[in-house]
Amino acid sequence: MSTTTTEIQAGTTATAYGLDAPSRLPLWKHGLTAALAASVATTVLASCASAAGVSFADSAGAGIPIAAFAQVTLVLSLVGVGLAAVMARRVRRPRRTFVRTTVALTALSFVPDLTVGFDAASAATLIALHCVAAAIVVPTLAKRLAR
């Protein structure tokens, strides 16, 4: 009785052998998907908060329209995708650098929420929405960057 072993050659896809292969989509496609998901999530949560009585109005009375949550989240998430793409090509440890940078930028994004003159409920909700968006986009991109 002889046994035959088959080795998977370099460059051969694992799916040809019936194995589960990790997703091979480019970084930007994963990033776009995460950006869209974050935009939907922040918009839905902002709508729920607004319905619960959070005003999103500053001390001058100017409020944030619900559509702005989707727009700003999408644009800034796409900036994060660009940042990840640049770091993937130019930085020695892109995952570590990307995570550290995005954590710092997320923390900096709280500053306007705390200084513009929002009431406590609005500021806390805005900060939570920043964290929700970051929790969706940053891990999605980070796990696709080299250690």
Rank of each mutant, 00 (worst) to 15 (best):
M1D: 15
S2H: 15
T4H: 10
T4I: 14
T5E: 12
T5K: 02
E7M: 04
I8F: 00
T12R: 09
T13P: 00
T13N: 08
A14Y: 02
A14F: 01
A14I: 00
A16M: 04
Y17I: 02
L19M: 03
D20K: 08
D20H: 03
D20C: 02
S23Q: 14
R24K: 04
L25P: 02
L25Q: 12
L27M: 13
W28M: 00
W28S: 04
K29F: 02
K29R: 10
H30V: 09
G31L: 07
G31H: 02
L32T: 09
L32A: 11
L32W: 04
T33P: 01
L36A: 05
S39A: 08
A41F: 08
A41D: 06
T42Q: 05
T43L: 01
T43N: 02
T43Q: 01
T43M: 00
L45Q: 04
S47C: 02
C48S: 14
A52F: 00
V54K: 02
S55D: 11
S55F: 02
S55Q: 09
F56I: 05
D58K: 00
S59N: 05
A60M: 09
G61H: 01
A62E: 09
A62P: 00
A62T: 02
A62H: 02
G63N: 06
G63L: 01
G63A: 13
I64E: 11
I64M: 02
P65N: 08
A67S: 13
A68D: 06
A68S: 11
A68G: 12
F69P: 07
A70G: 10
Q71L: 11
V72C: 00
V72G: 03
T73I: 12
L74Q: 03
V75T: 14
V79Q: 06
G80Y: 04
G82E: 11
L83A: 11
A84C: 09
A85P: 00
V86N: 06
V86H: 07
V86M: 09
A88C: 01
R89Q: 15
R90S: 13
R92N: 15
R92G: 11
R92M: 13
P94K: 03
P94M: 08
R95K: 12
R96K: 10
T97V: 08
V99T: 06
T101G: 07
T102C: 10
V103R: 12
T106F: 00
T106I: 09
A107H: 07
L108M: 12
L108G: 04
L108W: 11
F110Q: 09
V111G: 02
P112E: 08
P112S: 05
P112H: 01
D113K: 13
D113P: 04
V116C: 04
V116S: 07
G117A: 08
F118I: 07
D119T: 11
A120R: 15
A120V: 15
A121G: 13
S122I: 13
T125P: 07
T125S: 14
L126N: 09
I127G: 14
A128W: 05
L129S: 14
C131H: 03
C131G: 15
V132F: 08
V132L: 14
A133E: 10
A134K: 07
A134D: 06
A135K: 11
I136F: 12
V137F: 11
V138G: 05
T140H: 03
L141S: 09
L141A: 10
A142D: 15
R144D: 05
A146P: 03
